[in-house]
Amino acid sequence: MRDILAAEPDSSVAFLAGGTTVLDLMKLEVIRPERVIDLNALRGEYGHIRWDGVSLRLGAFARMAEVAAHPDVLAHYPVIAQSLSLAASAQLRNMASLGGNVLQRTRCAYFRDTSWSACNKRVPGSGCAALEGANRSHAVLGTSDHCIATYPGDFAQALLALDASVNVAGPRGSRRLPFASLHRRPGTIPHLETNLLSGEIITEFVVPSGAWTRRSLYLKIRDRQSYEFAVASAAVAVDLDGDVVRNARIALGGVATVPWRALEAEAALRGRPLTAEVARTAARAAFADATPQSHNAFKVELGQSTLVRALLQAASMEFQP
């Protein structure tokens, strides 16, 4: 491990795990690393899936499919299993690492096609072609005048909702940060997508357990039934006292520039019976600050409906004693 990370890396280096993002973007010349460092030697050390009754520890090099199928994950963290198994395709899930998955790059067409000169994510300061472009798939939450690209992943929403933390390692040692502070909203510098320091890699995700983790699910809405990024999605975890919400954790996907925690919606649910009306009120709160673009206004309503459906579905989950 130290050998791999010993050298002081720079932007000309790309780290490779599953390869599903890095190779894709290299072929498009969106990224042009001079060196690619294959990290898969770390899979032995950081490929684990461990549940000890208190927390779930997921090595960053575990493959999506392994985690999605793991009995402890299925039993105790359905939202994690579902967010993984509803993502991409079976082949990609066999390849993609958890760490690479949470760091996957946006699907914004103007980011992925280098013939567009204006993309602040790709070329800082160049502008944003999506603002006036075809932006049906773009974000309505967390946007800025500089970038409206959607965060495309699913698993990150599950981690975010469950207050996971992430362990990273780099040239200056190891540290832990809350998953919620891993991704950065675009603001004025959309090319900086995470708070990882140069040369740092994710080694492990730690997901605490709570009364809400079993009653959790991931709902993903898309145009076709499978193998598509979310148009809107919701990761929800709910702790109920009878019908009344003791605690709810919500993260939204497909509608935001980063994995999006809906704290306002959580507050709107707390202490109230989980009825359709209450869910609808909470969903409205989640999207109160939404900023739709020319082609994606529907996402404001769809995002709310997705959350309502997810919450009601979670409320109706039944458990074996």
Partner: peptide, 18 residues
């Protein structure tokens, strides 16, 4: 006048599950 979804992830074709 460019095609912005000229790939098989964004130009949607049915998959088996459809």
């Amino acid at each position: 006048a460019s095609y912005i979804n000229a790939n098989l992830a964004d130009y949607l074709l049915p998959v088996n599950a459809d």
